[in-house]
Design a protein around this nucleic acid. Structure first.
Length: 866
RNA sequence: GGCCAGGUGGCGGAACCGGCAGACGCGCAGGUCUCAAAAACCUGUGUCCGCAAGGGCGUGUGGGUUCGACUCCCACCCUGGCCACCA
């Protein structure tokens, strides 16, 4: 039977006929019945359990695809949709490529919104959370996400948070969890303390933006700082897998600076040693400790500055200066942290009247007090080197203090107008003259260290993680406070310490659990005496610091997870989530993973070697948000256009890591694309089949198909979903241009197209697949393989340049050599015209791509260089 | 001030390793079908000169390297982000 040629354009008989008679309602017969298709396939996939991951993956064939799990706020927004769709494409592709895929979802169930809702509406936080989870679960199901729902859990379930408690106790025994009295950040609105990472640049609460205040409280900490160096070092492992941007942020946050502590003796200290004894009985021979990253500038130190809060300010201030110093300290107290840490404003300060002895020269240098020195960093005291530090320079100018240059650039003089902060050669530095400042750094510290006047020191910005929260909706910290034995961990067999029912919610700055007598009253496991239960709960970021490991073995009731099983799945192969967690969750989880490794639970250095931070979904250029009122509800869009259409749009409109501007026209474009394939499928299934046509059009369509397989496969590997979809659109256009229907070639192309479409638009692809007469689900259908023979053309088009400028293209045999190419090029009239009578002096030939003919007097070579 | 990312048509974006800039989509214009419209389909769409053939110019700006630069190097401008009196 001959191939059936049909015009692609009008009279597509049965369907356009039907279309005319389906005027009632907006749905025409050619429109894809999304709702029907979606629920049908969602049910089918779930019933068949296709997305259930095996208990243990085959070695080398695992793909653990994870999205940052949601807080159950009650409504999923377009940002969730984007996040989870991106992961879904990666997971579905991996499954088709034959991997054992773990693609789980769960709920970050603890947190303030639930507790605030409980206070406001007099309901149970647990119930509120459960209801929200149900609502969001239904939304996620309607999006066609290939989750292993059998592994779902919520962190507010005692079956989960008991392991938080167990890890906490293990850390307590290792000294990694401890309590201390310390100045802490307290949010007056949330009525709880916060970790450093949870306070914004302007000193605001990360959650409610209220200004944070300082309090002095006894709180629980995890020794994050102990892992500072390792967290920094292991970023090598993440290079390439994480964006440079997040790595930079973490590097900044860890904030390593290498330098030295140097000890300055106080001059004439005998006369005032009594003052020190009163204030600090342990101090015998007071030496003021400073931290510097520039020990090479030591000889340029002409004065010293103490932070106003420094405990030595009082004893060092001579009677004559007391009034001035005290008034300055008062002034400082009134400034906010923000005011103090801005460079703006003149550098005020006062002289204490005391002097220190320069450790190298024994010179007396004055001791000043100024708030440009911060108590929180280093030791709260500095040696001031105005010649080589811009801040010290400014201070010295204002207060007429001496400026002594000790480092000089190689070939020019120092300007006396500013601090010289670059590299150079030492002078005015005693025995160190002539050394480069880099060499001098080590040598100066070395020499001082021999006299016990200095030691090398590394300083980090990263501090320990304050995990206590004075709120009820979190994991109870499993500690009992005994008047005799102190803080005693709750014995293993008493875990979990469960939240009591009927918590008297309220934000009072104290945990509501303190008012639950039955919870508080306990006995000490050591001495059996009466003890009080710890009532603070853990920061919810503890919950999210190891949830990725729990997914590997979520039903385990004996342990957090089986080590072997988790080690087989971990690390996570692809982690997808928003960038806002760069310095919170992503630091905490890396820390936790390393602790778990040291406790023997996991064996990989990093939990997430590959991280994709998806961009925001914007409308009118700003992130969609309820408060701005510029949101688009994914559910409404799904009802209007279908989940697959929305998926395609979200994937196609921008590369994953960039922001994506919402555009309903764009959505309609994607609907048009799906409809085009849909019509081809209907056409094909209603057309009598024919053998492959031996035409050049058929051959070229086949080649295009194989090139598309190649392109989509590669694009999926590098998570370039937008370009993958573009090439599917190209193939669809080629299929339309082919104009033949029902023959082998168009059938093969159509089937390939549908299989390639599956990760992006799975419901529609499954439906089309079965309409094409296929009986096996696409989930289990192997990913198409490009036939290398079909990828290459016998002939190729060579770009022809004359003197580097593109002039023409020429058809040439594939793998032709330079000689043949040049002959073919010179046969072209255009090229002949451009060459004129000029002689060819050089030929650049890139096989199968390009030939560039250079003439003797070509313009660029003849360019006079003057 | 330091660091990072980026700057390509009317718009979103493509060009992955230095080799035909603008794939794909949106929008716009013209056409086919229709009594008409919608849908669908076809054609065109960086810019300037030209009826056309053809040619000039074009990837923030200015230089450089190269036979050849969106791509590499130097300087600068702009946008976004992060850090920042961190000693």
């Amino acid at each position: 039977m001959p191939s059936v040629f049909r015009k692609a354009t009008p009279d597509r008989t049965p369907n356009s006929f039907l279309q005319k008679f389906s005027i009632i309602g907006t749905v025409s017969a050619e429109t894809i019945p999304f709702q029907e298709i979606e629920s049908k396939w969602q049910k089918f996939w779930e019933d068949q359990g296709f997305f259930r991951a095996p208990q243990t993956p085959r070695p080398g064939k695992k793909f653990y695809c994870l999205v940052m799990f949601p807080y159950p706020s009650g409504t999923a927004h377009m940002g969730h949709f984007r996040n989870y769709t991106l992961a879904d494409v990666a997971a579905r592709r991996a499954q088709m490529e034959g991997y054992d895929v773990l693609h789980p979802i769960g709920w970050d169930g603890f947190g303030l919104p639930a507790e605030n809702a409980a206070i406001q509406h007099k309901i149970d936080a647990a119930q509120w959370t459960r209801d929200n989870i149900c609502r969001m679960r239904e939304q996620f199901r309607s999006w066609g996400l290939s989750y292993d729902w059998s592994r779902e859990f919520a962190t507010c379930d005692p079956r989960y948070y008991r392991w938080n408690q167990q890890f906490f106790i293990q850390m307590f025994h290792k000294g990694l969890a401890y309590q201390k009295h310390a100045p802490v950040n307290f949010c007056p609105k949330c009525q709880t303390v916060l970790a450093n990472e949870q306070v914004g640049e302007a000193g605001e609460c990360w959650r409610c933006q209220a200004p944070v205040v300082q309090k002095h409280l006894r709180q629980w900490f995890l020794k994050l700082s102990q892992y500072a160096e390792e967290l920094l070092r292991d970023m090598r492992e993440l290079e390439g897998g994480w964006s440079a941007y997040v790595l930079q942020m973490q590097r900044n946050w860890i904030g390593k600076s290498e330098g030295a502590e140097i000890y300055f003796e106080i001059a004439d200290c005998e006369s005032r040693i009594a003052d020190f004894k009163i204030e600090n009985p342990e101090i015998r021979n007071p030496k003021l400790t400073i931290f510097t990253t520039r020990p090479d500038t030591l000889f340029g130190a002409t004065f010293m500055v103490l932070a106003p809060e420094h405990p030595w300010v009082e004893p060092l201030t001579v009677p004559d200066q007391k009034a001035k110093v005290h008034s300055y300290m008062e002034q400082t107290k009134k400034k906010s942290l923000l005011q103090r840490t801005r460079q703006e404003g003149e550098k005020e300060g006062v002289f204490t009247g005391s002097y220190a002895l320069h450790p190298a020269t024994q010179e007396k240098i004055p001791l000043w007090v100024s708030d440009y020195v911060l108590m929180e960093y280093g030791t709260g005291a500095i040696m001031a080197v105005p010649a080589h530090d811009a801040r010290d320079f400014e201070f010295a100018k204002k207060h007429r203090l001496p400026i002594r240059y000790v480092i000089f650039p190689k070939n020019r003089k120092n300007s006396e107008e500013s601090a010289y902060e670059e590299e150079g050669i030492l002078r005015n530095s005693g025995a160190f003259d002539g050394l480069s400042n880099l060499e001098a750094k080590g040598k100066i510290v070395e020499q001082l260290a021999r006299r016990k006047l200095a030691q090398p020191k590394i300083q980090y910005h990263l501090k320990d993680w304050l995990i206590s929260r004075q709120r009820a909706w979190g994991t109870p910290i499993p500690i009992l406070h005994c008047p005799q034995c102190g803080a005693v961990p709750v014995p293993q067999e008493q875990l979990p310490v469960q939240l009591p029912p009927n918590i008297p919610y309220g934000a009072t700055g104290e945990s509501p659990l303190t008012r639950v007598e039955s919870f508080v009253k306990a006995s000490c496991p050591k001495c059996r005496g009466a003890a009080k239960r710890e009532t603070d709960t853990m920061d919810t970021f503890v919950d999210s610091s190891w949830y990725y490991a729990r997914y590997c073995d979520p039903k385990n009731e004996k342990e957090p997870f089986d080590k072997k099983t988790a080690q087989a799945w971990l690390p996570v192969d692809l982690y997808i989530g928003g960038i806002e967690h760069a310095c919170m969750h992503l630091i905490y989880a890396r820390f936790f993973h390393k602790v778990l490794r040291d406790l023997g639970w996991v064996n990989s250095p990093e939990p997430f070697p590959k991280l994709l931070n998806q961009g925001m979904v914007t409308l009118g250029g700003t992130a969609m948000s309820k408060s701005k009122g510029n949101t688009v509800d994914p559910q409404g869009m799904i009802r209007k256009y279908g989940a697959d259409t929305l998926r395609l749009f979200i994937l196609f409109a921008a590369p994953p890591e960039k922001n994506l501007e919402w555009s309903e026209e764009g959505v309609e474009g994607c609907l048009r694309f799906l409809n085009r394939i849909w019509r081809k499928v209907l056409d094909f299934s209603s057309t009598p089949k024919a053998a492959a046509a031996q035409t050049s059009a058929a051959e070229s369509l086949t080649k295009k198909t194989h090139r598309t397989i190649e392109k989509v496969t590669q694009d999926l590997r590098r998570l370039s979903f937008n370009t993958a979809i573009a090439s599917l659109m190209e193939l669809t256009n080629s299929l339309y241009a082919y104009q033949v229907c029902g023959d082998e070639t168009s059938g093969q192309t159509l089937k390939t197209l549908v299989r390639l479409l599956y990760p992006f638009a799975p419901h529609v692809a499954e439906e089309m697949w079965s309409k094409l007469g296929e009986t096996q689900t696409l989930v289990l259908s192997p990913w198409p393989q490009a036939n290398p023979a079909k990828l290459s053309e016998a002939a190729c088009t060579l770009a022809v340049q004359v003197n580097g400028r593109f002039r023409d293209r020429v058809q040439i045999q594939k793998d032709a050599d330079a000689r043949e190419a040049q002959n073919a090029a010179q046969d072209r009239p255009k090229i002949r015209r451009h060459l004129g009578s000029q002689k060819i002096s050089k030929v650049i030939f890139v096989p199968n791509k390009l030939i560039n003919l250079i003439t003797e007097n070509n313009a660029s070579a003849a360019k006079v260089k003057d």
